[in-house]
């Protein structure tokens, strides 16, 4: 879940970076810094996908009504 949020944030930031870089009005220094940030984000986002493993839990209504997470044995 957190990975998904990180991933979404990375993609949003990348969109922003690409948009700004393509506007072509940046000082060289800033363009270089965005480029560095962007390529690092692409790398880390790919790494997130590489390492990701779907989390699956089964929910049970606890004594107080709040959901309790339980392991889900999937019989595949």
């Amino acid at each position: 879940m957190e990975q998904s949020k990180t991933f979404e944030a990375s993609v949003q930031r990348l969109e922003e970076i690409v948009r700004r870089m393509e506007s072509g009005e940046l000082p060289l220094e800033e363009a270089l810094s965005l480029f560095g940030e962007g390529t690092a984000l692409v790398k880390s986002a790919n790494a997130l996908l590489d390492a990701a493993e779907l989390t699956v839990v089964k929910l049970k209504k606890g004594a107080d009504g709040a959901p309790e997470e339980m392991e889900f044995e999937s019989h595949e």
Binding site: F7, L14, I17, V18, M21, L26, L28, A31, L32, G38
Partner: peptide, 24 residues
């Protein structure tokens, strides 16, 4: 598709950077 998108961002950033460097 997500990986393709990331690759496309990278390509676009590289192209933009190249244009910027050329300008400099």
């Amino acid at each position: 598709e997500l990986r393709q998108r990331l690759a496309a961002y990278e390509t676009r950033m590289c192209a933009a950077m190249e244009r910027r460097l050329k300008l400099s």
